[in-house]
Simulated assay, not measured.
Amino acid sequence: MMSETIQKYYQTGNYQVLRQFKSKKNRVQLIEISAGQQVIRLIEKTFTEAVALKKELSMLNLLHEMAFSVPECLGQFDRVLLYEYLGGMTLCEKLEIAEVCEPDLFSGPVNRDSEITALLKKTIDWLNRLHQKTGLTFYDINLRNFIVRDNLIYAIDYEDFSKLKPAVDYGRLLAFILTYKPVFTEWKKALIRELEDYLNNEIKVNMDEVRHEKERELARISERRAKLV
Results as ranks from 00 to 15, higher is better:
E49S: 02
G88H: 05
L120C: 04
M59A: 11
K122T: 03
L60G: 02
E93F: 01
T46E: 15
T123I: 01
K45Q: 00
L74V: 10
E72Y: 15
A118E: 12
L127D: 05
L42E: 03
K121Y: 10
T123S: 13
C101Y: 02
R79W: 00
L62E: 08
Y83V: 06
R112E: 12
E115C: 00
L57I: 10
K94W: 03
R129Y: 10
F47S: 04
E65H: 14
E102Y: 05
E102L: 01
L95V: 02
W126K: 03
K121Q: 15
I124C: 07
S114G: 06
I124M: 15
G75V: 07
D113T: 09
D78E: 14
A52E: 11
E93S: 02
N111Y: 04
L42C: 06
L42Q: 02
L86D: 06
S107I: 13
L119D: 01
T117K: 05
V110D: 10
E96Q: 14
E56K: 07
E72F: 13
G87F: 02
I116W: 00
L105Y: 07
L82G: 08
W126A: 06
Y83W: 12
K94D: 10
E115A: 07
D78T: 09
L57W: 07
K45V: 00
F68C: 05
M89V: 14
I97W: 11
I116Y: 01
L60N: 06
S107E: 12
L74T: 04
T90Y: 02
S107M: 11
L120P: 00
E56W: 03
P103M: 02
H64P: 00
Q76H: 08
Y83F: 15
A118Y: 13
L57G: 04
F77M: 14
L81Y: 04
K54D: 10
G88D: 07
E96R: 11
T123Y: 04
L82Y: 13
L105S: 03
V80W: 03
H64C: 09
F106W: 08
S69H: 14
N128D: 11
M59Y: 15
E49W: 00
S58C: 09
C92M: 12
S58Y: 10
V70D: 09
S107R: 10
T46C: 03
V80K: 10
M59Q: 12
K54V: 01
P103W: 06
K94S: 13
V100D: 14
R112D: 10
R112Y: 13
V70S: 11
L82T: 14
K122Y: 03
V80C: 11
L119V: 04
V110Y: 05
V100I: 15
H64T: 09
K121C: 12
E44N: 15
E115Y: 07
S58E: 12
S114R: 00
E93I: 01
G88A: 09
